[in-house]
Amino acid sequence: MSVTQIQQYDRPSSVDAAWQLLQQGDGAAQLLGGGTDLVVRCPPEVTALVDLSDAGLRYVESTTDGGLRLGAMSTFTDLLEHPAVVTHTTGVLGEMLAQVGSVLHRNSATIGGHVVRSRLSDVLPVLLALDVTLLLYDGTERELGIGEYLDGGLGPHVVVEIRIPPRVEGSAAAFTRFARTAFDHALVNGCCRVDVRDGVITAARVVVGESSAVGRRVPPVEEVLVGASLTPETIDTAVAATRRAVDLHGDWIASAEYRQHLAGVVTERCLRTVAERLPGGGA
């Protein structure tokens, strides 16, 4: 059945044209990326769609310093087939993208759409762990950190590009998820990145998410890691800190207690993989 509330459908040929259309109608217009979410969950006030297919946002560029610029309309399949994307920071992006939805979804879901919808996401924990920034357009272009972006409070805008910084020397990252079946929203997911110099962790990102909320960094665990070596003992401490620090909720699929437990498992598995991926196999 069609989304009958939609009265208007446009395919602007530039970001600026899209922005102009988006501003009309006071929240009645909605940007359309890959479309995997809007048909099922179209907000009731939306009556116009602004399809970004022709806005020139489907690209992947490597920057000279080793960073990546992902056009917002790049599909997950586009990204999975791009060598620089799947190998970035010890392969964490590829590892994650291969586990998002099924091929059918990856062929149409876009990275930009995913960031904008900010829900049920395996993608966001990895973007948070990699300190990505977003290029936004709301009349002018500006760059915003992903964490700040997820805090919300922004007016109408177009997400133009996801900017992934170059890999930090001596860093490694890993993503893991736990779900009931292979094709299911994660009960708990997580991503960890550590930057190591001379055997000591100089920076850490620990993100834990669950199926009904976007992932969040867990600063107390990051603090445990920074200044330490990534030894089995450090990992044990980080796992315990994770279970103390996160506050996951229960629902009919899994209890809060079980999710808290899984958060520790996810952190442990991420950090163990990170340790293997560090130059020289870690500490």
């Binding site: 048909v39 099922v40 399809d51 059918l104 979804h105 149409s108």
Partner: peptide, 20 residues
């Protein structure tokens, strides 16, 4: 599922306008 420019996608989640 249908092939859209050779790639399989779920036709129920796409708006018709996307295949222009």
């Amino acid at each position: 599922a249908v092939l859209l420019d050779g790639r399989a996608v779920t036709a129920c989640l796409l708006f018709a306008g996307q295949v222009e």
